[in-house]
Design a protein around this nucleic acid. Sequence first.
RNA 1: GGGCGCGUAGCUCAGUCGGACAGAGCGUCGGACUUCUAAUCCGAUGGUCGCGGGUUCGAAUCCCGUCGCGCUCGCCA
Length: 588
Amino acid sequence: MFRQFREEVEAALSAALSSLDLPDDDLGVEEPPEDVPATLASSVAFRLAGVVGAAPPSVAADIAEEISVDGYDYLAAVDTQGPYVNFHVTDAYYDDTLTAAAEDVEYGRLPSTGDSVVVEHTSANPTGPVHVGRARNPIVGDAVANLLDFAGNDVERHYYVNDAGRQMAVFTWAYETFDEDDLDSEPDRDRIEYDLVRYYQKGNAFLEEADPDEVEAAEAEITEILQGIEEGDEETYARVETVVDQVLGGMRECLARLPAEFDEFVKETRFMFDGRTRDLAERLKETDQAVYEEDAWQLELDEYDIEKNLVFLRSDGTSLYTTRDLAHHEWKFDNYDRAVTVLGEDHKLQAGQLRAALDLLGNDVDKLENVIFSWVNLPGGLGMSTREGTGVMLDDLLDEAIDRAREEVETRMEDRIRNDDLDEDDIERIARQVGIGAVRYDIVSKQPTKSITFEWDQALNFEAQSAPYIQYVHARCCGITDEAAAAGLDASDVDPSVLDTDAERELLRVIARFPAVVEEAADDLEPHTIATFARQFAEVFNRFYRECPVLSADDEEVAAARLALVESSKHTVANALDIIGVEAPESM
RNA sequence: GGGCGCGUAGCUCAGUCGGACAGAGCGUCGGACUUCUAAUCCGAUGGUCGCGGGUUCGAAUCCCGUCGCGCUCGCCA
């Protein structure tokens, strides 16, 4: 309803300004502070004061006077408070919000845009277990995908697998060269990628520490693997994929715990074998920006403010990661209306070169959008690295989160009032939902551009401003709706006007805003604003919960209307949580 | 050194496409469970929005400078 109201406000204000012969290019429509009893306001009078030659409050009064609310469904009245023009809603605004939200379990979902969007995220090289430094990518990526889906797009989630690069060649060589006996540690966990990463680490250590002769021999083998892939040699490909598929399989299991799941794992070798990479390199050579320097084909991107040349063919004629990624992206453009990529800030330059090169090749690069996130560090400024084996593993973080949540559930079980007979399975379910939810919320609720210092106690705080705080609201809603069903209370035909307390009105106002919050978050690709909304929503709901009894309300009409409000709340909070990838427990 | 990002309460963070007194949580201190679940709620405490200039009726927000931190500047990915 908020979205429609905003449109009405803009139309009414714009019309008034026109009839006063004032410019309406900047309406200055904004949300007023909490203590102002208006739903929207405009600061346009400040800007027009100079034009009119009067003080802002006087201009505001003139504008308010000129605005007609006739013919609008939700715009009830206009008044001023000093220089601000304030806009108030009709009862229909509240009525329609309650009806829409209470009846629709998908409340907040926007109408279809008709666009297909591919969201690529994570895409970590299959070198070993997922650590927390990388975990920001699947968590943010999954939320971005959910958000775009909820905003009406047809979304596919892709994981781009770098199976043709040097790292995988090193891994393959190490896997084939070393034996279990050569390794000096046991796997940290009984899953394939924890087993195999030891070969990768061993191989890298060897390349750094072994005698130069031995290193040279190893490098020759690695180069042979890379060239085999480049030439499309099936046997070499099979050797590499043996490693890739095993490690990726393990990483996939880990990511599924979040859960972050994918519609497709797109391997870069695919764009080598089908000839797209070669064709693309030929087209790049034809551009005016292509130069052949130091035996390698490069692209000069000065006109895109990128000083560094992009090498797209090595002196031995083989392709580079970015060359293959260019072919990958043209494939995306062929198959989707929009392409969103979630990537770490260390890939920013590469992403800029990619966009520039795609533009040179005549693609509409407006279809390509990036979400860039900064690093997650360990306390003390330590980084995380798979090659060096440093960092907190995502599996360990999730286990610890679930363990702490289980302890919490068991402690609370003793003085639990509600008599709904939770069994062992419930305890385990709640521990998992709360533990993993807390981790996800901790990460998804922050702006991706800011770097994060990972701290256990911070991430696993189960109180306010955390996932459990919000999940608890959902559980409370479910508790009420269950009781209401048992008591035969019906919320299908209610009179919204009986909801007249501040707490009830405030709750309806927040619910009404939800679709607009989804819209804005999707436009900006900022799922963290959904997390902020969910927290604010939970605060407002808790006030309602405290002040407005539902089942024991004074009369049946109020009880029914409040029940509808609880249904609305349940849908709103469930959907907000769903977007940020946090489960909504029915009891906890 | 060049480019990009970040700097808001003791700590972790919202707010940043200029607008109403800069907001939460944690922490500290003090209150509220015979009540639809207290993972809750209420109150107190806490700020030169890194620093210095500028633009503006108005700046945490825009511009310039400066300091600190991170990323980046491979025929790696």
